[in-house]
């Protein structure tokens, strides 16, 4: 009975994983399908019928709009998460040294973009940029789509950085900063050499969060950008009814690097844990 219950658990997990990976596997399988309708014309909407094996989808994936969209997405994600990490870490250090009342006031406002539906965030950005651009039109300047996307992505990422750095700061001792000052550091040096190394794990997980939010965003970018497409916007516009569909090879192009990266990170963590266990055993044996 116990054995049966145990295998039932694995079956349940297996079924759920199958459900989660079904669409990804589906796209990867069909990325090898030929979608040529007639000479030179490609129509991807026919995902569901096998019409012959080909690798040409992979050659097509980097050319044209899809390649541009992929590049823009990566650029925006990298720049915005670096800037958000810098502003957010500084903000977390500042917030941590605030008095209780002003701290909870700032934290409440920080939750705004996290609680707000991203639909509303996107709309407010759209109206803000329309307003600013109409003001700037008098002096013949315009915020470009790139600038708009960057500002929007930085804004919704910063709170995630703050909320990953703050817990770490709370664990770290205030004495560290004081000690660095006593040993002759300037306040800036004290932060750079004593505080920041201590909270580094929080900063890096904040950076990863910011990167994820930016890479995965569709709604805010959709409302903010007029002419330039990030990957999500590109896929959305191609997926709508009456268009030529999305090249399924995109799924493989995103999936393989992602899985490789996660595997490396996790294997390293596992190896570290193992090492730690072995060391623990050695210490116990010495005792």
């Amino acid at each position: 009975m116990k054995r049966f219950g145990r295998s039932l658990k694995y079956v349940y997990l297996g079924v759920m994983l199958l459900f989660l990976y079904l669409p990804i596997v589906y796209l990867i399988v069909f990325s090898f399908n030929s979608f040529h309708v007639n000479r030179g014309n490609v129509d991807y909407t026919n995902i569901g019928k096998c019409t012959g094996f080909t690798l040409s989808n992979y050659a097509d994936v980097f050319t044209g709009e899809a390649g541009k969209a992929l590049l823009l997405t990566l650029e925006i994600a990298l720049i915005s998460s670096v800037v958000a990490t810098i502003i957010g870490t500084a903000a977390a250090i500042g917030i941590n040294s605030m008095k209780k009342r002003s701290r909870s006031a700032v934290l409440s406002v920080s939750q705004l973009p996290m609680v707000n539906p991203d639909l509303v965030t996107g709309i407010t950005f759209m109206m803000l940029f329309a307003f600013v651009n109409s003001l700037l039109a008098n002096v013949n300047i315009k915020i470009s789509d790139f600038g708009k996307l960057l500002i929007a992505h930085i804004s919704f990422s910063i709170p995630y950085v703050i909320f990953s750095v703050l817990p770490r700061l709370k664990q770290s001792s205030d004495m560290l900063y004081e000690a660095a000052l006593d040993l002759g550091c300037s306040p800036f040096q004290a932060l750079l050499k004593a505080v920041i190394p201590d909270i580094m794990p929080g900063i890096s997980s904040g950076f990863i969060m910011a990167l994820t939010m930016s890479l995965d965003d569709f709604v805010v970018s959709y409302f903010v950008s007029d002419l330039r497409s990030t990957l999500s916007i590109y896929i959305y516009s191609r997926a709508a009814h009456g268009t030529k569909g999305v090249n399924p090879a995109l799924a493989t192009i995103i999936f393989i690097p992602l899985v490789t990266m996660l595997l490396i990170v996790n294997l390293r963590r596992l190896a570290k844990e193992r090492e730690y266990e072995i060391q623990n055993k050695k210490v116990k044996m010495k005792k």
Partner: peptide
């Protein structure tokens, strides 16, 4: 730790793309 990572990998895949895949599955498969 390993299995939970498997559960969270799809979160990192572009969700518009995953939704598109579902529309294909529902319409054709």
């Amino acid at each position: 730790g390993f299995i939970s990572v498997l559960f969270f990998v799809p979160m990192w895949m572009n969700f518009v793309l995953r939704t598109y895949a579902w529309s294909a599955i529902i319409e054709y498969a």
